[in-house]
Amino acid sequence: MDHSKHTRLATTELTPEILEGATIYGPGDEKVGSVSHLHGSQVVIDVGGFLGIGAKPVSVAISELEFMRDEDGGVHAVTNWTKDRLKEMPEHVDP
């Protein structure tokens, strides 16, 4: 996917309504997870699993992700985190 033609989201667009469910792509343009929900300034990403079953939730700073909208209006993000690196992170547990 050529992300260079996608429109970056403005800070005001970084809301749960827009970001939840967004696909996250890693440095090799591979799918590394999807946004589960926001937790303050953190994004909780479901990593691994199949159709949401068995996925591990991990938390990263929203600044670690570059959210954008594709030509069809779909929201996704890119990051330098690999799926393996995300899986190594501690599991996120909401208080």
Rank of each mutant, 00 (worst) to 15 (best):
Asp2Gly: 14
His3Asp: 01
His3Arg: 13
His3Ile: 08
His3Trp: 12
Lys5Ala: 14
His6Arg: 07
Thr7Phe: 03
Thr7Met: 04
Thr7Leu: 08
Leu9Arg: 02
Thr11Tyr: 01
Thr12Tyr: 02
Glu13Thr: 03
Glu13Arg: 09
Leu14Ile: 04
Leu14Asp: 06
Leu14Tyr: 00
Thr15Tyr: 05
Thr15Ala: 00
Pro16Leu: 05
Pro16Asp: 01
Pro16Thr: 08
Ile18Val: 12
Leu19Ala: 06
Leu19Asp: 08
Glu20Met: 09
Glu20Arg: 15
Gly21Val: 14
Gly21Pro: 05
Thr23Met: 14
Thr23Cys: 09
Ile24Gln: 08
Gly26Tyr: 13
Gly26Ser: 15
Pro27Lys: 15
Gly28Ala: 15
Gly28Trp: 04
Glu30Trp: 03
Glu30Leu: 07
Val32His: 09
Val32Met: 06
Val32Thr: 15
Val32Asp: 15
Gly33Arg: 10
Gly33Ile: 13
Gly33Ala: 13
Ser34His: 05
Ser34Pro: 00
Val35Asp: 04
Ser36Gln: 12
His37Thr: 00
His37Phe: 11
Leu38Ile: 07
Leu38His: 12
His39Pro: 00
His39Gln: 11
His39Asn: 05
His39Gly: 07
Ser41Tyr: 04
Ser41Cys: 04
Ser41Phe: 01
Gln42Lys: 14
Ile45Arg: 09
Val47Asn: 07
Val47Ser: 10
Val47Gly: 07
Gly48Gln: 09
Gly49Asp: 10
Phe50Thr: 13
Phe50Gly: 06
Leu51Lys: 14
Leu51Cys: 10
Leu51Val: 11
Gly52Trp: 03
Gly52Asn: 07
Gly52Arg: 07
Gly54Cys: 12
Gly54Phe: 14
Gly54Asn: 13
Pro57Thr: 12
Pro57Ile: 08
Pro57Phe: 14
Pro57Leu: 12
Val58Met: 11
Ser59Gln: 12
Ser59Val: 06
Val60Pro: 02
Ala61Trp: 08
Ala61Gln: 15
Ile62Asn: 09
Ser63Cys: 05
Ser63Gly: 03
Ser63Gln: 12
Glu64Met: 05
Glu64Phe: 09
Glu64Cys: 05
Leu65His: 04
Leu65Gly: 01
Leu65Thr: 05
Phe67Arg: 01
Phe67Asp: 00
Met68Lys: 12
Met68Gln: 02
Met68His: 06
Arg69Trp: 00
Arg69Tyr: 02
Arg69Ile: 02
Arg69Met: 02
Asp70Lys: 00
Asp70Ser: 06
Asp70Cys: 05
Glu71Ser: 13
Glu71Met: 03
Glu71Trp: 01
Asp72Glu: 10
Asp72Pro: 00
Asp72Ile: 08
Asp72Ala: 11
Gly74Val: 09
Val75Ile: 15
Val75Asn: 11
His76Leu: 07
Ala77Thr: 02
Ala77Tyr: 03
Val78Asn: 01
Thr79Asn: 06
Asn80Met: 05
Asn80Leu: 03
Trp81Ile: 09
Lys83Gly: 08
Lys83Leu: 11
Lys83Asn: 03
Asp84Leu: 15
Arg85Ser: 07
Glu88Gln: 12
Glu88Arg: 07
Glu88Gly: 10
Met89Glu: 09
Pro90His: 02
Pro90Gly: 05
Glu91Asn: 11
His92Phe: 13
His92Arg: 07
His92Leu: 03
His92Thr: 06
Val93Lys: 14
Asp94Ala: 10
Asp94Glu: 10
Pro95His: 05
